[in-house]
């Protein structure tokens, strides 16, 4: 076990865990930040997407020991009042079905928009390729990203 002081959603959180523990399980099991989901454990589905210094990362394969000083943002910290343009656009387009993948989709899309404020369809296809939605809400996700792009 090792002690880590992590910067998460603007606050410092201390955990005492094995160095190999993926950030996903630190967030969920140890800090009860459960918005970040477990889907595959091998960076193939995107359900666990968080931001590390603003960059989208798959937290299921990121050992806690590699987080260091970088600031972690989870879906819980994406916006002050859950009113990020993407969250609002997701509601406007009534995107979710089962909903399990959607926090990861939003986190990935948020990173996309901060790099590419006006993404083309091709940009969205490429950037969102790592996020699976088993329910098949892709057309709505894309529409919501475009709506958010016009408002952010």
């Amino acid at each position: 076990m090792s002690k880590y002081n992590l910067s998460i959603n603007g606050a410092t959180r201390s955990v005492d865990v094995d160095a190999t523990t993926p950030l996903l399980w630190v967030l969920r099991d140890h800090l009860r930040l459960i918005g970040t989901k477990y889907g595959c454990g091998m960076a193939q589905c995107g359900a666990c997407t968080v931001h590390l210094d603003g960059v989208a990362m798959r937290s299921c394969v990121l050992p806690v020991s590699q987080v260091g000083e970088q600031s972690v943002t989870t879906i819980e910290g994406l916006s002050e009042n859950n009113d990020h343009p993407l969250q609002e656009a997701w509601l406007e387009h009534d995107v979710p079905q089962c909903g399990y993948c959607q926090a990861g989709q939003i986190m990935n899309a948020a990173a996309l928009l901060s790099d590419t404020p006006n993404p083309t369809d091709e940009d969205i296809d490429a950037m969102m390729a790592g996020n699976i939605c088993r329910c098949g809400t892709y057309t709505r996700i894309k529409a919501a990203i475009k709506t958010a792009a016009t408002k952010s």
Partner: peptide, 23 residues
């Protein structure tokens, strides 16, 4: 007349809804 998904806000906010989220 279309009504929005009643759980959508919780879903996009990452609030606990699933068994996986329960401790």
């Amino acid at each position: 007349n279309s009504k929005k998904n009643v759980d959508a806000r919780k879903i996009v906010s990452g609030e606990p809804l699933y068994a996986m989220d329960r401790y």
